[in-house]
Amino acid sequence: MKQSIISTALFIQDILPALLRASGVTVKLTLYSIILGIVIGTGIALMRISRNKVLSGLGTAYVTVLRGTPLMVQILIVYFALPQLGLRLDKFSSAVVALGINASAYIAEIIRAAIESIDPGQMEAARSLGMSYGLAMRRIIIPQTYRRLLPPLGNEFIAMLKDTSLIAFIGGEELTRAGQHIISATFRPWPVYITVAAIYLCMTALFSLFVQLGERKLLQ
């Protein structure tokens, strides 16, 4: 018994460097995707609240489609189906595009809700000073949403970090895929998957802590 624990510990020690290296890819994927998601999501949110019916309709359709289809299918479409239309991206870019676009739909809803939670009197006060709608949004409304955005965006980041594991299905060399490689060479799924899960947990816990610190800072 004692011996098997020691041998498992040694085994984990052996595989840890490869898994940690792959975790770097996971973090990078998450960061790029969340940034893409925030950029696109902000645009979609502004479309959704626009008085222009065509714009808001398009925004709604975008959110409906992306939230209504599985992320897994979206990843497969970007990596395997888009090349048939002549758009070929490498695995990492495909992953960022698929994850980022998927997240943008959720982030758009987060941002829209935050903007709509701001007292309409703020927009009126800004407009009464002669500000255009765009300037009022940029100077007055959006800055007030930051504090309300941080917690849901933190959740989104954590969900995204875990969702990157789906990239293993298109052969992206992130944490889960690295684990699978080790298993196919060693036939020891138990310690490998537990280690993989533990690394995900460490990363999400660490990030939750950052979000909490950030919130406290914004509350001051």
Binding site: Q122, E124, A125, A126, S128, I140
Partner: peptide, 10 residues
């Protein structure tokens, strides 16, 4: 210039 009932300061 406009002054509102609920101030609407930023």
């Amino acid at each position: 210039g406009m002054v509102f009932q609920h101030f609407n300061l930023f």
